[in-house]
Design a protein around this nucleic acid. Structure first.
Lengths: 134, 134
DNA sequence: TTGAATGCAAAGCTTTTGCAATTCA
DNA sequence: TGAATTGCAAAAGCTTTGCATTCAA
């Protein structure tokens, strides 16, 4: 993984804890607490504080980002620059599905026309009931 | 205001604190802390806990809603059912501008076509630099 | 008058920080 | 070896809650 090279090159270490956090995030966005519990379930020895510190480092290195849904709890997701997508969050079971939208760029254009605001980022999340829970 | 009628009808009281919180929110979305400080600046005597309790009540009555931006701090906004809009949040000065988007319904339709997910709500917020800060 | 609402203080959650002990390069 | 990292515990920031007092109807 390129991230491990980058870390090493800048004098950071690749510890088992850091690898575990990265692995935990590989399948779906999670909260810090969820990462912590998932790792504990896999008998990985890590402190919650280290989870947070690792997440902070990964954000600094641009490999993960924070997601904000309809609560005040941060979720963390691996960034894949070839895959810009949004989320379908099930309010029943909490599952998070990815979705890519083709209309997106038109939105930004519409804003450009309507306002002098210079858009740098946007967040777009959908809440509702997933297929399984319907 | 209809909300005051509703409150009274259900046995709730219209206190000066509740009126103040409603007034504070009339111009722009605010955090609980911001409401508290704004009122304090206007020499309104209210406790932070009462601000939170009032906000909770207003949410229950459907007159305000929570907004979640790119931090873990809740913001509260008065609901106007005739005015569905999104926000342009300036990352420089923190100002919040409203914007209505005409393309919106197409988005929901696109999701309907792409997924079995039943969308009930969505959040769409834009971050960047406002006209003044550019 | 009396139940609803408030203020104050304490507690609860999520996240951050300080520091001594540990570990990797 | 020596700096980076960790675990543990304490603290910090936002929000909620318990309870005695106050207040609106």
């Amino acid at each position: 993984m390129k991230i491990y090279q980058d870390l090493r090159n800048k004098g950071f270490r690749i510890t088992s804890q850091r690898e575990s956090v990265m692995k935990a995030l590989s399948s779906s966005p999670l909260t810090a607490e969820e990462i912590y519990k998932k790792l504990k379930g896999d008998s990985v020895d890590i402190d919650l504080a280290s989870v947070y510190r690792t997440l902070e480092l990964f954000i600094k290195f641009g490999v993960i980002k924070e997601l904000f849904f309809n609560d005040s709890i941060k979720r963390y997701e691996i960034i894949d620059h070839n895959d810009h997508h949004h989320h379908l969050i099930c309010t029943e079971c909490g599952s998070i599905e990815d979705i890519a939208l083709s209309l997106e760029k038109k939105f930004i254009k519409e804003i450009k026309n309507k306002s002098k605001f210079k858009v740098e980022k946007h967040s777009l999340e959908f809440f509702g009931i997933c297929r399984k829970c319907q």
